[in-house]
Design a protein around this nucleic acid. Structure first.
Lengths: 228, 228
DNA sequence: ATCTCTGGTGATCGATCGATAAACTACCCC
DNA sequence: GGGGTAGTTTATCGATCGATCACCAGAGAT
């Protein structure tokens, strides 16, 4: 056929971006790619998403691992911009309303396919930032919630929650988290009204905490097991 | 130095296994490998774990994908051997005891690093068997639990649970599931006594269900939202 | 208009991937 | 004990991976 015919290489017109723009575009598209394919996703596929060639990546990142670290940083730190402490600890408002609002905002931030998948993939890799995040949830969210619950129930505000209390809060938190996993990872049908799911989960958590607190004050000891 | 010296190839004495044994050994070690590395784990690394060479795999499986499917089958179907239906529906025993025992047995089966990691990896791949499993949990476990709860509360046993009830059960179930994820995936410290975690989670779930049932009969309608 | 940065490309390397074909060898049977 | 079969290895292919290098070309400065 027309082999060896000198076809004028119609090179897609080079689109030049500033270094900062290109760099953040790399991170943004890498987040999408890794969310779908996992961190095994290829650098060539990433370049294709940007409409550039693969070696360009290495003008901005020394290695793929460095790019991945940037993705972590962006994904883990982005939804943390909101002031949680004030929201949870603002005792001028009823506790329940605070918790409801907090979880609505929190889940608005993390309940999306991209965030949840990156979170799960990085969790399976067992990296430091994931362990840091779990510790942060414990210290900044669950411990705070438990302190407010104790205060609300008229109990002494101890500096650190008991292991049993903490586990109660984790099961509650995990139950809400799993809603996001079911919806965005498993793509299973869920109760559409997210706010109501949170409301119902709060109902049973608060009722459970109160009954635990009551039996603790009644019997003057921590309830280890309610039914044998 | 001694290059070109004809070193007598000291080949590790061939250990021959029956076809069935070798095949199941492949599946077993592949489960371990994929649990740690994800399904991107290499066939050469797998062969190394068996102490054989890589091409041998293809005497037993037409492709790596077929091996992966076998791993799925083994992992997903293995813990299902137990008779759940009888356990949950045996009305000669108190409901709470049935639920406690069921979740202790169920979590004994799935709370281990191998199972949870394979489950999460396959969930991220969005494969059919994962969606099947989630549907199975809904139909065979949660729906059954809710039916027993309704019966226990003296309510009409309807064929299918309401969306709100189901979500309540999912949040409860997910909270327990997340305990396993925290312990075996994140390797975070958890309340060591698993049975007590289940007991506490059951307390608040059952209390929540009862209060929902009460308000439903009192007000003659399903409680959509308790606090606005 | 030309110079000069610097963003961007083309070509390619070595390693590793899944998979195939042919040769080898341990073990069972007669 | 000499086949013969079936389990195993050696050698290798083509594709793809992350990464490197020399070179090209667009845009602002002069």
């Amino acid at each position: 056929m027309n082999r060896k015919t000198p076809v004028k290489r119609v090179r897609a017109k080079q689109r030049r971006l500033s270094a900062d723009d290109r760099r953040s575009e790399f991170v943004a598209k890498a987040t999408e790619l890794f969310a779908e394919e996992g961190f095994g996703g290829g650098t060539r596929a990433l370049a294709r998403k940007l409409g550039v060639t693969q070696p360009l990546l290495y003008r901005y990142f020394p290695s793929k691992d460095d790019l991945i670290k940037e993705v972590y940083r962006k994904v883990y730190l982005e939804p943390l911009e909101i002031g949680w402490e004030k929201l949870l600890s603002d005792r001028s408002r009823p506790l329940r309303a605070r918790l409801q609002e907090f979880y609505e905002i929190y889940t608005d931030a993390i309940f999306n396919r991209k965030w949840l998948r990156i979170y799960l993939y990085s969790g399976l890799k067992g990296i430091d930032i994931n362990r840091w995040y779990v510790g942060m949830v414990k210290d900044k969210i669950l411990t705070r919630i438990l302190r407010e619950c104790r205060h609300d129930a008229g109990l002494a505000t101890q500096s650190r929650p008991s292991a049993v209390e903490l586990e109660l809060a984790w099961v509650f938190h995990g139950g809400i988290f799993y809603y996001g996993v079911r919806k965005y990872i498993y793509e299973a049908p869920v109760l559409e009204d997210k706010a109501q799911m949170i409301s119902d989960a709060l109902d049973i958590f608060l009722a459970g905490f109160e009954s635990m607190a009551e039996s603790a004050t009644d019997r003057r000891r921590a309830p280890v097991k309610v039914v044998g």
